[in-house]
């Protein structure tokens, strides 16, 4: 059987909220190392990869690997029933048809029990090449969300260009064009707002803003986001889960998006 308790139900709630609009159904693979989910959106343009290591759980028991086929919008509905400071316990039998979800308030005076029907989801697992990226930009996740939202006003495709000086987001559409440049700033008052750029060579790629917008729904998870790019490969937009700032968390939520290329 599988049983795991997370001290903060809100963390799981934020994770599922962040992916439920991009992916409807997904298999959560549970093993002795933790919980993983990998799923593509229906058009095979983007991929979500969620990793929750056992060390972020208060209690974790998994006797045998289990696959939990989950309808994510329905899971999100149940998670919304948790209180802000509740813990959450997930339980499933080896061949069970349901996922039990139990919320407990801090003082354990309120216990809520739910069951989510599991599904058989036919999804193939993809091998993501383990690669070093040419460019890694770390910035405020709220700032990234704001830029993506602002770019969307003007068009549906955003160019992200990076040089040592800064990272430039550009868009053009029927009503005009715009761009926002963030300069590399190591000495800002608020550490969370710093923009740091590690790069080998300047890179510029084009991406669909619709998908970048989906990814920024993960902003409440972490004040920092890491954006990784290399020429002609999918961009990675990664958030730590259950960690602080951009230090290594006990989990991660990464989004991959294929670029747009000139025909």
């Amino acid at each position: 059987m599988f049983e795991a308790t997370l001290q903060k139900a809100s963390t799981l709630k934020k994770v599922i909220e962040a992916i439920k609009d991009l992916v409807t159904d997904g298999n959560i693979e549970v093993s002795e190392t933790g919980m993983n989910l990998q799923a593509m959106d229906s058009s095979h343009v983007s991929l979500v990869s969620l990793v929750l290591h056992t060390d972020m759980f208060e209690h974790f028991r998994c006797d045998r690997n289990v696959t939990l086929g989950i309808n994510l919008p329905n899971f999100a509905k149940i998670l919304k029933c948790s209180g802000n400071d509740d813990s959450v316990t997930l339980k499933a039998q080896d061949d069970g048809e349901n996922l039990a979800i139990v919320f407990e308030s801090e003082g354990q005076e309120r216990v809520s029990e739910f069951e989510l029907k599991l599904m058989d989801i036919d999804a193939e697992s993809l091998g993501i090449p383990d690669q070093d990226y040419n460019t890694n930009v770390k910035m405020s996740s709220a700032e990234f969300q704001r830029i993506v939202r602002d770019m969307t006003v003007l068009g549906d495709t955003c160019s992200i260009g990076c040089t040592k000086e800064g990272v430039k987001f550009s868009v053009s559409g029927d009503l005009g064009q715009g761009n926002i440049t963030l300069r590399q700033t190591n000495s800002v008052d608020k550490e969370e707002e710093a923009v740091t750029i590690e790069m080998d060579e300047p890179v510029e790629l084009n991406f669909a803003l619709r998908y970048l917008g989906f990814f920024t729904k993960a902003s409440p998870l972490c004040p920092r986001v890491t954006i990784s790019m290399s020429p002609d490969v999918p961009i990675v937009v990664a958030y730590n889960v259950g960690g602080e700032k951009d230090t290594e968390g006990a989990g991660s939520l990464s989004f991959y998006l294929a670029p747009k290329i000139d025909e």
Binding site: E124, S125, G127, P129, N206, V233, P234, A258, K260, E263
Partner: peptide, 14 residues
């Protein structure tokens, strides 16, 4: 004109 690439051309099934 730009074309959206599919992830299938980057990531292969395990």
């Amino acid at each position: 004109k730009q074309k959206q690439k599919s992830l299938d051309s980057f990531f292969k099934p395990k």
